[in-house]
């Protein structure tokens, strides 16, 4: 059933809407440490999305922060890694990689990174400490080229890969906390209004309902 704001009454409708915004903000705060997370924009939540439509995300680049791990790869720019999913190559922006049991780079979900232009030589990434990945995604073991990381590039702007860094979430903690406080007050105001509505209804019923 599709309820409109009129069906639920303005106060309750407003409260549900604010609750949804609070949920978006808490989701942002919970994920502020997740690399590659894109914050949900609370203001963009329309009434329809209260009933389950997808949230709108802010897709600005998160800051690139160093971790020092040689297989952490942050993408600067509008591009995705290609990883082997169940039905073929998928796009993914997860930046933490490590070698799996076959000696191939894979992300934290176990999906293998697609590496093209692979060398014919028998070079193993597991046996060397000296592995460099340059801004174009070319993998070098010492001075030997091992291969190139396949990227799905979405627009014409330049794309760079940073080895040893991850893309942090684009959540601004102070901003989210401020939004949370505002939303909370707004919600409290709604629910006081609801309380007053309820007590008005109660009085009306008690006063005039009795003589019926």
């Amino acid at each position: 059933m599709n309820y409109t704001q009129k069906d639920l009454g303005p106060t309750i409708g407003g409260m549900l809407y604010k609750l949804k915004m609070i949920e978006a903000i808490t989701n942002n705060i919970a994920n502020s440490g997740t690399s590659g997370y894109k914050r949900v924009i609370p203001e963009a939540i329309s009434f329809k999305s209260v009933l389950g439509e997808a949230a709108i995300h802010d897709y600005t680049q998160g800051p690139v922060s160093k971790t020092g791990n040689k297989f952490d790869l942050a993408i600067e720019g509008n591009a995705h890694f290609l990883v082997e999913g169940k039905n073929g190559p998928e796009a993914s922006r997860l930046s933490n990689f490590q070698l799996n049991s076959k000696g191939n780079l894979s992300n934290v979900l176990g999906q293998e990174l697609v590496v093209i232009d692979k060398t014919e030589k028998d070079i193993s990434l597991a046996k060397s400490d000296d592995i460099t990945i340059n801004a174009n995604g070319e993998i070098f073991v010492g001075t030997e080229k091992y291969g190139r990381i396949a990227l799905q590039i979405l627009d014409n702007k330049p794309v760079r890969i940073h080895q040893g860094s991850v893309e942090s979430s684009n959540v601004d903690m102070m901003g989210e906390m401020a939004s949370l406080s505002l939303m909370l007050r707004s919600f409290e105001a709604s629910e006081k209004a609801l309380g007053m509505e309820a007590s008005i209804d109660k009085e009306l019923i008690e006063k005039y309902g009795r003589n019926v």
Partner: peptide
């Protein structure tokens, strides 16, 4: 931050 969020959620339920 997470505990502040939990406190806020608790306040909502209380109200």
């Amino acid at each position: 931050a997470q505990f502040k969020v939990l406190k806020a959620i608790d306040k909502i339920y209380e109200n």
